[in-house]
């Protein structure tokens, strides 16, 4: 699915990622844990193609394609989804019309016609119900004035709608209370179908208690310094990042 080889990334002339290697197979759930400011979010942004994140060396293979050579929207259409730590507000754009437009962009790339308005409403109702999202939220502007929980739910709704093959979650647990964390995690777990892969970037164990990873990596000094199974996450939680 995804293979990162010898990756160096710098942001504004500062090298953040140094010789990173990571392989994620289909259906696997990987977690990257690391202290604040270690640059673990840089991995997410680099994979999604954020401007100013400069790949200095190495390469990334995603579904047998050279990911780094592609524009951000092409990466999305290829099946890469990044759930933002801080979802961006789009004033004046209603959530419903936005969701429809991004869905249609994906349909178009598959050679399908734009979705019929009635069918879209049906899908939107069904998926919103699963996430306990009131339909009223879709007539509001994208993420504008949404609570932390609503924003994250809206990200999960978009994952569900776009049907990606790799989901990268960047600090999805930040800003969520226990209840919101639980319901968001449950929704994400429903998307685990044995084929879809996940890369979960987090500081704390608590998200991983709800979304159980197959592999856990500890990120430090721009690279993965230790890998293991989910027991590694518990150990980090007990002992902190400093102890190795």
């Amino acid at each position: 699915m995804l293979e990162i080889k010898n990756l160096d990334v710098s942001v504004e002339d500062k090298q953040i990622i140094k010789n990173l290697n990571l392989k994620i197979g289909p259906g696997e759930v990987h977690a990257i844990m690391g202290p604040n400011g270690s640059g673990k979010s840089t991995i997410a942004h680099t994979l999604a193609g954020k401007p100013n994140y400069l790949v200095e060396a190495g390469n990334v293979d995603f579904k047998n394609e050279d990911l780094i050579a592609k524009d951000p929207y092409e990466r999305s259409l290829l099946g890469l989804f990044l759930a933002f730590q801080y979802p961006i507000e789009l004033p004046g754009v209603t959530n419903a019309s936005y969701l429809k437009q991004i869905l249609n962009a994906h349909r178009k790339s598959r050679g399908e016609n734009p979705i019929d308005a009635g069918e879209f409403l049906k899908i939107l109702k069904e998926k919103s119900r699963n996430l306990n999202i009131p339909m009223e939220m879709h007539s509001r502007f994208v993420n504008a004035g949404f609570s932390g929980g609503e924003k994250k739910k809206n990200e999960v709704l978009q994952m569900d709608l776009l049907n990606p093959s790799l989901i990268i979650m960047d600090e999805t647990d930040s800003g969520l209370d226990v209840d919101a964390l639980k319901s968001t995690s449950e929704a994400v777990n429903k998307l685990r179908d044995g084929k879809r892969s996940f890369l979960i970037i987090t500081h704390y164990l608590r998200l991983l208690e709800y979304i159980e990873p197959d592999h856990v990596h500890v990120f430090g000094d721009g690279s993965i310094i230790e890998s293991g199974d989910k027991s590694l996450a518990s150990r980090i939680d007990n002992e902190g990042y400093e102890v190795k």
Binding site: A48, D71, Y73, S76, E89, A105, H106, L162
Partner: peptide, 24 residues
């Protein structure tokens, strides 16, 4: 950030810009 967010969801640069401008 707005452009990148929309592009991450599959809109190309012009579609993203036009969505934001139409919102404005």
């Amino acid at each position: 950030d707005q452009l990148f967010y929309c592009m991450q969801r599959g809109l190309d640069a012009e579609e993203a810009q036009s969505l934001i401008v139409n919102g404005f």
